[in-house]
Simulated assay, not measured.
Amino acid sequence: MKSTTRGTLVAVITGAVAAAGAAATPAAAVGTVPVPVPLEGVSQSLGMEVPKAGLELPLLTPGTPDGPRYVTGHLLPDRTLPQVPVKGALPGAGLRAPLPQLLDDRFDHVGIDAPASDLRTLGPGMNVDAPLTQPDPRNFGLPDLKLPEAGVLAPALQTVAGANLSSGPGL
């Protein structure tokens, strides 16, 4: 293969990879991936109206944990096992179902729209302290004994979820 042909091939592959990467960026920036639920085939095969549905699945991104910190009077640092933050979204859904009119052949609809909402979490962590104090100069530099300490940092969850229930004429 000639060097010009190889160079052209490399340029085409590089362009294709760059285009694919640019197309993937908006989905990652949003935090959710839309997932359509294809029910049109069921509607055509049964000859009747079926519900329409769409989902949004979250992309979870772990954050940087708060590292251990030195605390005066303790041998081990505070937050020995740090809490790991995770950002993402609650799954979203859009559902719309036909609602037949009793006195007519037409349809109304009833629907619910629950958009994906931001979600911030902190995983559990742990505080531990050794059963020894810091070296004591009055005791020839030896540490004193004390009760060991252990504590669990509770996980946290923060979000604001919302939904909209609607009904109206037509599908």
Rank of each mutant, 00 (worst) to 15 (best):
P124A: 15
L60S: 09
P26Y: 07
D104G: 07
V50L: 04
V160A: 14
G170E: 07
P131I: 01
P51M: 02
P137D: 02
V128R: 12
D105W: 08
S166T: 14
G141A: 02
S117N: 08
P34D: 05
L145T: 13
V128G: 02
R79N: 14
P169E: 12
A154R: 14
D118C: 00
V71T: 13
P82L: 10
A97I: 04
A20W: 03
T80H: 08
G94T: 13
P68E: 13
P169F: 09
V17S: 07
L46Y: 12
T133S: 12
P131A: 00
L157T: 11
L132H: 01
P137H: 01
A27H: 05
V17H: 03
P98N: 03
S3M: 06
T64F: 10
P82T: 12
V152L: 15
R6P: 04
S43H: 05
S167C: 08
L103C: 05
P148M: 01
G151Y: 02
P91F: 01
S166L: 07
P58K: 03
A156E: 15
P68A: 15
F107A: 11
L55P: 04
S43V: 02
A130D: 07
V30F: 08
G67R: 05
A16S: 10
A11E: 02
K87Y: 08
L59Y: 02
G168H: 02
D108C: 10
G168T: 09
L153D: 09
Y70V: 15
A89V: 01
L75Q: 13
V12N: 02
L39W: 04
V42Y: 06
T61W: 10
D118G: 14
G123S: 15
G67P: 11
S167T: 15
P58C: 01
K87I: 06
K87F: 13
A22S: 10
A22F: 11
D129G: 06
P36V: 00
M126F: 11
D105V: 09
T61Y: 05
A22V: 06
R6V: 13
V42F: 11
L60M: 15
G125S: 04
T80I: 03
A20T: 12
R6E: 09
T121W: 06
M48I: 07
V128W: 12
T121K: 01
P143C: 00
R6Q: 14
L102G: 05
N139D: 10
A116T: 00
